[in-house]
């Protein structure tokens, strides 16, 4: 058994990343087309929000730049999670073909190896679009940026990445039982992304509870943004909760990784 140390694993991870980068750059035209398509696709999606604000003015007291902040935190989170965790997204193929057996034979953690199977570098297009929107929102909004607020913003992005990452891991874990990937997960990941682009207050209570307590996207987005904007939460979360909420995202990812380990232990090969 090889002893895994963190720097060693990290080095291996970057090796995987370098291989993926080289492989994907073999088709440069395709790579750039994809990146641009992602950027434009997302820009059109945001245009939908702009159109709605043009028509209705505000959304329950929230302005367009404030929504843009919510939107970009989610966008950055999902772009990073998709880019890094793509291996978990395409995991059903690995299970169906039986190739997961090979991963189990190697003296490395399965998580690291699954991460290494695929990375989507063209998600950079999505990331870039979210960053542009974030930059615009930060310029327009009259926020007094202090160091803790900047740190909170970064923490929120990290929290969002962790929640989406956790969802991808969970989705893959279910394949140990179902073999087939289930489309219903899209409702939670991409539906969650859509949901969290708008303030939690617009939704019905059961829905809010789902995206706070079960899939804690609101903890990475709505709650910390309240603290950054200096806006007391109409749903009654005290400032301390607003400041610490993104940590829940990290806990969520850790919990999902625990479930993953359970799944790996349960795994029986399809034999194909």
């Amino acid at each position: 058994m090889v002893v895994e140390t963190a720097p060693d694993s990290l080095r291996l991870y970057f090796r995987y990343a370098a291989v993926q980068l080289r492989a994907q750059m073999q088709y440069p035209a395709s790579f750039w087309m994809m990146t641009v398509s992602f950027f434009l696709g997302m820009a059109l999606e945001f245009a939908g929000i702009v159109i709605l604000f043009h028509r209705f003015g505000t959304l329950r007291g929230w302005t367009l730049p404030e929504i843009a902040m919510l939107y970009s935190i989610m966008g950055i989170g999902i772009a990073l999670a998709e880019g890094i965790g793509r291996g978990f997204d395409t995991f059903p193929a690995l299970i169906k073909s039986g190739d997961f057996d090979r991963l189990l034979l190697r003296p490395r953690s399965t998580v690291l190896q699954v991460l290494g199977t695929d990375m989507q570098l063209m998600r950079a297009g999505r990331l870039l679009q979210a960053l542009v929107i974030l930059a615009w929102a930060v310029r327009v909004l009259p926020i007094e940026w202090t160091l803790p607020k900047c740190a909170l913003l970064l923490l929120a992005m990290m929290g969002a990445t962790c929640v989406f990452g956790g969802l991808f891991v969970l989705q893959a874990t279910f394949c140990f039982w179902t073999i087939e990937g289930l489309e219903i997960w899209n409702a939670v990941t991409y539906g969650g992304n859509e949901t969290a682009q708008y303030p939690l207050t617009v939704y019905r209570p059961w829905f809010r509870r789902f995206f706070t307590w079960v899939v804690p996207l609101a903890c990475a987005n709505y709650l910390p943004l309240g603290a950054i904007l200096g806006r007391p939460d109409p749903l009654g979360a005290p400032p301390a909760v607003q400041w610490c909420a993104p940590l829940v995202g990290i806990l969520f990812l850790l919990a999902c990784l625990r479930v993953w380990r359970l799944g790996v232990r349960h795994y029986t090969s399809t034999g194909s």
């Binding site: 709605l52 209705f56 003015g57 505000t58 489309e183 219903i184 899209n186 539906g191 617009v202 019905r204």
Partner: peptide
């Protein structure tokens, strides 16, 4: 399964538009 996903998605859109319509008297 697809219909289930679509229903969930529709609910989200419905709540968002409902909130927008309530935000403007025009």
């Amino acid at each position: 399964a697809g219909a289930g996903t679509q229903l969930f998605w529709g609910l989200i859109r419905m709540m968002i538009f409902d909130a927008f319509y309530r935000s403007s008297a025009a």
